[in-house]
Design a protein around this nucleic acid. Structure first.
Lengths: 118, 118
DNA sequence: TTTATATGAAACCTTTTAGCTTCATGTCAA
DNA sequence: TTGACATGAAGCTAAAAGGTTTCATATAAA
């Protein structure tokens, strides 16, 4: 753990990440958090063609996949992006499907990040 | 187009890719094709706890997402990985969620590839 | 030409998913 | 302490997804 964020995921957990990313509404929520991190549920609902409980469910799934971490402030639940699972998956598929010189770049990237892989 | 492979995808098409990758059986099929490219349906079915029509359905979804391209040889349908959609998505999320020096690496990567982005 | 092989397609079933409505709980502020 | 606000939870419905069985079609080989 580094602060609140888990830094290494099992292959099993990666399934939750893939499935969480499969829904366009959830990707849109991540986009919104990228534009403005730390929003509460109410803010995240604004302008969406969905009810609040629906958004809450999506956020719960993102939380379960560790793509979003939360912090309570009084009665407000603030949502923050966690980029670690994304990077894990990105690494996996880069390594698998890119030509050698790109894999080398990926290795460099990992060294810069100080990751310990699998 | 470069040969048979489409090199640029719309945001709409990316949804098909995300959804295709959400299923563990389909990711396993991609893994198998990575280990040995150009397999036919029969080969891809071997040792899987699934019937042939099920595997065929999965491959159809991978095809629709352009993650797999096919080539007929007589009565055999050969399946090949297409890495382009993966790279598109990888790029998107790298750019969004990684710190600046990693985005810079991603830019370098793109230049090496000669991609024209969005 | 007949038989075996490789795949496609249709119909059906079950489970999961995405959404809703309604109600309950906890926290802040007057 | 009362009322407004922010969220959680339960129960329901409709649609999508993943799988099966059965049958049809096209190609290769005997």
């Amino acid at each position: 753990m580094i602060g609140n964020q888990i830094v290494s995921y099992s292959v099993r957990d990666q399934d939750a990440v893939f499935r969480a990313l499969a829904d366009v509404s959830r990707r849109e929520l991540l986009d919104r958090l990228f534009a403005k991190n730390g929003q509460n549920l109410g803010e995240l609902c604004e302008g969406l063609a969905m009810t609040r409980p629906a958004v809450a469910k999506h956020l719960k799934i993102l939380e379960a996949a560790n793509l979003v971490v939360v912090q309570w402030r009084g009665r407000e639940k603030l949502h923050f992006i966690n980029s670690v699972p994304i990077n894990e998956i990105t690494d996996r598929w880069i390594r698998k499907f890119e030509p050698p010189y790109l894999a080398a770049i990926s290795d460099l990237k990992s060294q810069l990040e100080g990751d310990s892989h699998d």
